[in-house]
Design a protein around this nucleic acid. Structure first.
Lengths: 249, 249
DNA sequence: AAAATAGTGTCTTTGAGACAGTATGAC
DNA sequence: GTCATACTGTCTCAAAGACACTATTTT
């Protein structure tokens, strides 16, 4: 390593040799580690995101502002990052995990006034809750509001990821309670994408890819009965061979 | 720490009110935060990855084992996680960043014997270095070797991401020094994918997508001269409308 | 029967795969 | 010239888009 610059912690480096098991276990400063979850649902034909209000106690950063649900990793309780995300999701929604994927991490010296911090961001898709809670905001409204920390950046990243994946995966199915009909599923796709899709092409794609299982004619969001479907394998989304609107030309 | 369970540090929570600016700035234990970089190149028709040997000092975890280059985030030097990854890349290869993307983060109580740790993994693609360094290993060899910590998992994740993206993006172009010819580019695709591609379809895809700029006939890995190309926009990879071998059937 | 939506069929277009064929330059 | 490789063309195929059509259920 270069002479001038000191031997700062390199490679998963050793704490300086005179290691003393102290509070933090390392001699140099550690960043704060948090997990934030971007929880999406579709309700009333709108893509919505769950936000919470920051506490207003003294010393609290961004008091009273809207923020993504999340918080510090608890090294006592959380065995893994994913466990931590599942816990946050459960605490905030009471829902079980329909789809939870890691988005990425954001870390810098300035994003939290309390110090160098890094947050691991997860994206969750859940069906619309029965009780319309005031915590859900239309994504447009959420993006237009001032959010705590760099949560606007995180939300935008999640939105970009969701919209991108909706073009070529079965992800939106996780936004619906089962069983659902193909017209309902198409509507969810259209809400997320913000544009209309061709019915025939949509049905062909969904049925040919075989990720749906028939579950008997059900329901009626319409004058006519329709076939109900459930997701054959909830553990992962299906990837389609092409994106929608391949050549926008 | 909280009594029985609840109300542990919630949302980017406040440190308990009696906050005293101490070594760690928080009253509860913080995880270790590291950055690891999976650096790929193609050399001698092989996909290779850069690995380093863990130091053998006393108290060092996994002494002498092969590991991904990386290390602790230095809150004094690194303004952001990306800066930290760029620094690791520069220190290990001396190369500038041809392509550097975040893969994800892995965090758990057990992955590092020194305590709860979370690593942010980046994937870098660089052209083959002039001097064949001993640090480069064929990925097959690397996957077959025992690696430090959970680095085998991280390497496999990076490989999966790379192979997946190669199916539908221009990523492999970042593995070549400019200018390169289409046959050379095709060879890189084939090395990463591990299968042959049709020449005609390959050329159509590359040229139609328009991410290459002609730079004059050059070179000769072959008896005949070929057109040289450079990447028009190095800031991002181009996404193709379909994957290779769409229906493997 | 009318209305409204579920679901199907048929034609076109895009872009990939297969594969044969032509062009160019070293020897 | 021959040889090896760069490059092009033509046919087929898979899946998406456009859009008209039939089917089913409530009123």
């Amino acid at each position: 390593m270069p002479p001038a610059k000191k031997k700062s912690p390199s490679s998963p480096a050793s704490p300086p040799t005179h290691h003393q098991p102290q509070a933090c276990g390392q001699d140099f400063a550690k960043p704060l580690v948090t997990v934030d979850v971007v929880i999406f649902t579709v309700q009333a034909q709108r893509l919505q995101v769950l936000l919470v209000r920051r506490p207003t106690g003294e010393g609290e950063p961004c008091p009273g502002m809207l923020a993504l649900p999340g918080g510090f990793v608890d090294v006592e309780r959380d065995a893994t990052l994913l466990d931590c995300a599942v816990r946050k999701l459960r605490d905030k929604t009471g829902l079980h995990t329909h789809h939870l994927e890691q988005l990425g991490s954001w870390g810098s010296a300035g994003r939290d006034p309390r110090g160098w911090s890094v947050t691991q961001v997860y994206m969750a898709l859940v069906p619309a809750p029965d009780t319309a809670s005031a915590q859900w905001l239309d994504v447009d409204a959420a993006c237009a509001s001032p959010l705590a920390f760099d949560h606007a950046t995180l939300l935008n990243a999640a939105l970009a990821r969701l919209r991108s994946k909706v073009e070529y995966t079965s992800l939106p199915a996780f936004l619906l309670p089962e069983p659902f009909t193909l017209p309902q599923l198409q509507q969810v796709y259209e809400v997320v994408l913000g544009r209309a899709l061709d019915k025939s092409a949509f049905r062909k794609r969904m049925l040919d890819s075989g990720f749906l299982a028939e579950v008997g004619t059900v329901d009626g969001t319409a004058p006519r009965k329709a076939m109900g479907y459930r997701i054959r394998d909830r553990s992962q989304a299906t990837v389609f061979p092409r994106t929608f609107r391949s050549g926008e030309s």
